[in-house]
Nucleic acid binder design. Structure first.
Lengths: 153, 153
DNA sequence: AAAAATAAATGTCAAAGAAAGTCAAAAAGT
DNA sequence: ACTTTTTGACTTTCTTTGACATTTATTTTT
């Protein structure tokens, strides 16, 4: 029979993958579902979800407490994602498309929230209001590309 | 299941944001609305609206008493200075002027080096190469202003 | 008009409740 | 034998609740 710890590990990793790289649980509930003592969860977290293994675990005690597990994005995958994104971008970008891109970058931890906001401001319609017609979306793309390139240097 | 404290915190912050950074409540009424004991409000105020977290709480007891919460505005004099400079600089900006500005921002510790590089990329001639003639420097100014504005929020 | 009583607010503090954390002993693998 | 896993008692942290205290405003009494 499979080890309990392995079952818990597999379950958590499945939950994480189904949830964009992070998950929130309450230790007690999960323990109950799996029919084990709560500290077993702690054990699994400390042996299979360490920092060195690419995970970050936060928690909070007390009423309504929780445990969150984040899968860290390695710079390798991040830069791969950026490369792919840049290549599929084409040479035009609407304001909305830019927002979607930036949102994804944040989700994939390529850039931080605060950085995304600055970039969003830079490529907003408001910033580019003086530009006429079809050139606007091309300039927008140029700006975003330059910023992203700069960022990954 | 969301914590009651979190619900109260979120509600208060929403009220504050909708009301130019401050709000006045009566503890009893709010407690009644939220179906909790009044001291729960006190607890939330003492754990989530501390001075260190950027809030100031005043109160008064007795008939007609109240509790006021103010969100403290960080008076970043350097940032203010820079905004003033931006505003008095007219509506055009060359690439070189932009670089000088950004270097000053970093020196005044208004923004960090990495942020400055992103901004520099955004307003570089390379980003804006598709824009014709005199409009280019106006667009550059717009972009920089929007980014700085966003940054100081 | 002054004093006293009453009502209407917030403040305090400690106990109870609800989570996660720790650690060492026992059990199970290797 | 040695290492890893499982278990459970105990600890720590955070939240919720309620009784009681204090402060301020209003009303009543003298």
């Amino acid at each position: 029979m499979a080890r309990l710890s392995d079952v818990i590990e597999a379950l958590l990793k499945e939950m994480i993958d189904e949830n964009q790289g992070s998950v929130e649980i309450t230790r007690g509930e999960l323990a109950e579902q799996l029919n084990c003592v709560p500290s077993q969860i702690t054990y699994v977290l400390s042996t299979r979800f360490t920092n060195g293994q690419g995970y970050l675990v936060e928690s909070r005690r007390g009423g309504g407490g929780w445990i969150r597990i984040h899968k860290l994005v390695t710079t390798d995958t991040a830069s791969q994602y950026v490369m792919h994104a840049l290549n599929t971008m084409g040479d035009e970008l609407t304001q909305h498309q830019a927002y979607v891109f930036l949102r994804n970058f944040v989700d994939y931890q390529v850039i931080e929230e605060s950085m995304a906001k600055i970039m969003q401001a830079a490529v907003s319609d408001h910033s580019l209001q003086l530009i006429e017609g079809p050139i606007k979306d091309k300039v927008r793309m140029q700006i975003l590309k330059q910023m992203i390139l700069q960022h990954s240097m």
